[in-house]
Design a protein around this nucleic acid. Structure first.
Length: 514
RNA sequence: CGGGCUGUGGCUCAGUUGGCUAGAGCGUCUGGUUUGGGACCAGAAGGUCGUGGGUUCAAGUCCCACCAGCCCGACCA
């Protein structure tokens, strides 16, 4: 079509030619090393192309793949095993707080969404809508839930009668669909799995407290203690809050490329929904009042955060508490019966951990090492002839690659120590990365430059929606949150962008975001 | 949804101005030798060239539409 085509092809041929020559020359010089390097190259280095690295880690760890269905994801068994661990832990944390699980339909009548004006406005561009059923056109289209506030609150309106019914809390584990323009595995897929909790309270104050309680006592705790992922907590700006919310709180975490990931949200919905769904209760004073609600959720996006927080150029790194397999035992010679017996006894000793023994006889040990490293298994135990002589094994930890010899009797104790140390040092490393990239700025020039470098940039800002849009247009960054733990600064402050006097004493965090 | 790029065995790709039964490497399978960081030898299987039209004696190659993926925007957990 274009004249340029010919030139492009020529360039392509030349490039291919030269790279082939280069490769063969290298092979002549450093044969072994070159072969290894090309073999390793199935994971792109983080520094070269972060996005490609992310995809390579997922593919090599066999976590997930794109579905033939546009924007959707197939979660493969190993990826799903990680999700199951997340679900199990979060579910038990929620149950400890008295939250009960329930399930609501995947289909929501279109009219339900339309009852809350801001809610429908926020979600309508990304809805999947069912128009036919049973071979006939439906009288009213059914929306595939993008979130379940509306269908759940319709039930609340019939379930909640008295102040004695409050607070009322329900959680559901479900899939939701949001027709996203640009999908990315785990981070933004058209269909995703999540937990969504919904509560009803007698007052705005109680709703506020509950939304924060979930954030701090469930989400922060889970991120820190289990994911080893340090998160900031804070409040979203007007422009960034949930469609239909009075206030949105979030946990937000810094990824290794300097971008911020919203890992979970908790909303104080005030009485915005209860007014439109007529959810009311008879209070002690005999007055009929609207309830105040909260909703909160975390999704399979957590796995994306997990990957981008800890993984390295060799592949996935999992915090021990979320690893589906914590220890893998690799007998160097699978035909060595004595070594197999030792492996069996080690499995027994490690009864409290999830352990797998790799007895595949068609793979050499080195190949197994790479495979389990790419899957992020925290500890590898090697049992070979040399170890058998010493009545010991070799322990290798995934994050540092450190090897050590360990007497057989000491294994449970050492494994426990290593796993604990790895769990805490992964957190410490991520926290250090974040703190080192934090910046405090007071001029537009510094602001712009700091954003380019990545990490959170703390500055004074007016909070205005149009001002935020302007900042986004100029820098690609948006406000992430107003940190809860930020200190108040006395005196007047001017907005970094528009120069207006701000009403806030605290600085906002800005960052490039996922 | 706009702009750019891509789609050929499981994976990475080659395939010239359209021309014969579409190739390579890796992986897979079978057998053998090996086994402390991605082994080697011998043999084998595996492809509707993204889908549907069109042009042509002839299409992986040219044209159109659609689908999917990647990158950049807008949107978002």
């Amino acid at each position: 079509m274009k004249k340029d085509d010919g030139i492009d092809k020529k360039d392509k041929i030349d490039l291919t030619g030269s790279s082939v020559v280069e490769r063969s020359l290298t092979i002549n010089g450093l044969k072994q090393k070159t072969e290894k390097e090309t073999a390793m190259k199935n994971i792109t280095k983080r520094g070269e192309d972060y996005s490609q690295w992310y995809q390579d880690v997922i593919a090599n760890a066999d976590l997930a793949e794109h579905s033939v269905v546009r924007g959707c994801m197939v979660i493969k068994p190993y990826g799903y095993a990680i999700w199951e661990k997340i679900v199990a832990i979060l579910d038990s944390m929620l149950k400890e707080m008295g939250v009960k699980n329930a399930y609501f339909p995947i289909f929501i009548p279109e009219s339900f969404l339309e009852r809350e004006k801001k809610h429908v406005k926020g979600f309508s561009p990304e809805l999947a809508v069912v128009t036919h059923g049973g071979g006939k056109k439906l009288e009213e289209p059914l929306v595939v839930r993008p979130t379940s506030e509306t269908i759940i609150y319709e039930s609340f309106s019939r379930w909640i009668r008295s102040y004695r019914d409050l607070p009322f809390v329900i959680n559901q584990w479900a899939n939701v669909v949001r027709w996203e323009m640009r999908p990315r595995l785990f981070l933004r897929t058209s269909e995703f799995l999540w937990q969504e909790g919904h509560s009803a309270h007698a007052s705005l104050q109680e709703a506020e407290e509950y939304a924060l309680k979930i954030l701090n006592e469930v989400y922060v705790k889970f991120a820190h203690d289990f994911m080893a992922m340090p998160v900031y907590t804070g409040q979203k700006s007007e422009g960034e809050k949930f469609a239909g919310a009075f206030r949105t709180f979030c946990i937000e975490s810094l990824m290794q490329d300097g971008k911020s990931l919203q890992a979970g949200t908790s909303h104080n919905l005030s009485d915005n929904f209860s007014k439109s769904f007529d959810v009311s209760f008879l209070d002690q004073d005999g007055q009929r009042k609207n309830i105040f609600q909260t909703s909160w959720g975390v999704s399979t996006r957590l796995i994306g955060g997990l990957i981008m927080t800890h993984s390295d150029d060799k592949g996935l790194v999992l915090p021990p508490k979320l690893a589906p397999v914590q220890v893998v035992i690799i007998p160097i010679r699978v035909t060595d019966q004595a070594a197999i017996e030792v492996a069996k006894s080690v499995v027994k000793q490690l009864a409290g951990f999830s352990v797998e023994t790799d007895l595949r006889d068609y793979l050499r040990p080195g190949e197994k090492y790479y495979e389990w490293e790419k899957k992020g298994i925290p500890v590898r135990i090697e049992i070979g002839p040399k170890d058998m002589e010493n009545r010991a094994v070799v322990l290798v930890r995934r994050d540092t690659g450190a090897k050590e010899s360990c007497a057989i009797s000491q294994i449970p104790q050492r494994v426990e120590e290593i796993l604990q140390d790895m769990q805490s040092s992964l957190f410490a490393a991520a926290l250090k990365r974040r703190e080192e990239s934090n910046k405090i700025v007071d001029s537009w020039q510094d602001f712009e430059q700091a954003l380019k470098q990545g990490g959170y940039v703390f500055t004074h800002w007016c909070g205005d929606e149009s001002c935020e849009a302007d900042i986004k247009q100029k820098t690609k960054a948006v406000s992430r949150f107003m940190p809860f733990d930020a200190r108040e600064e006395h005196g007047d402050h001017l907005c970094i962008n528009c120069g207006k006097k701000t009403v806030y004493k605290k600085r906002w965090a800005f960052a490039l975001a996922y």
